[in-house]
């Protein structure tokens, strides 16, 4: 099992951390966005052999982030992905496709601030609520049924 190391950092510390990992010869294993309320959480994962460390950083929508792809060229895929799916703005990246890497049909589909994402989440939550309701009902009925079965079985035995 990989070590689960998560370090919370601020935007102004990012450059220093990345330079230090690069100097020590660590590899950039992953860069991904996810949404936390109305902010975007960026996760940088660095690996060297069995060691793995993750940097967590919260940024505002539209805030400019220094890109890591000049140091780690393999990050150009992740940066374009994060900017297209979450609307994160990277500064000084190796290649900026300007929304034509994945070419999503709606802008920033995975950022909760975008309208389609909100609709999607609302429908997903409604479905979840309905299902929970159903499950409760189902569980009750199931219980009742089991009881009935039990009662039936007693005289047989």
């Amino acid at each position: 099992m990989d070590p689960q190391v998560f370090i919370d950092i601020q935007l102004d510390e990012l450059k220093g951390h990345i330079a230090s990992y690069h100097e020590r010869g660590w590899r950039l294993a992953n860069l991904c966005g996810s949404s936390v309320d109305d902010k975007v959480e960026l996760l940088y994962s660095f690996a060297q052999g069995p060691e793995l460390e993750n940097l967590r950083m919260l940024v505002d929508n539209g805030q400019k982030i220094p890109a890591v792809s000049p140091l780690y060229p393999n990050a150009f895929v992740f940066e374009n992905e994060a900017s297209e799916l979450y609307g994160v703005v990277f500064e000084g990246g190796l290649v900026d496709y300007g929304g034509r890497f994945y070419s999503p049909s709606v802008p920033t589909p995975m950022n909760p601030a975008s309208l389609p994402a909100q609709e999607y989440l609302a429908s997903a939550r409604a479905a979840a609520d309905a299902e929970d309701e159903q499950e409760k009902q189902g569980a009750e009925e199931q219980g009742a049924e089991e009881q009935e079965e039990g009662e039936k079985e007693v005289p047989r035995g």
């Binding site: 299902e131 159903q134 499950e135 189902g138 009925e141």
Partner: peptide, 9 residues
């Protein structure tokens, strides 16, 4: 079948 609809969920 007891129509419990667990499979549906």
């Amino acid at each position: 079948c007891i129509l419990c609809s667990i499979c549906v969920r």
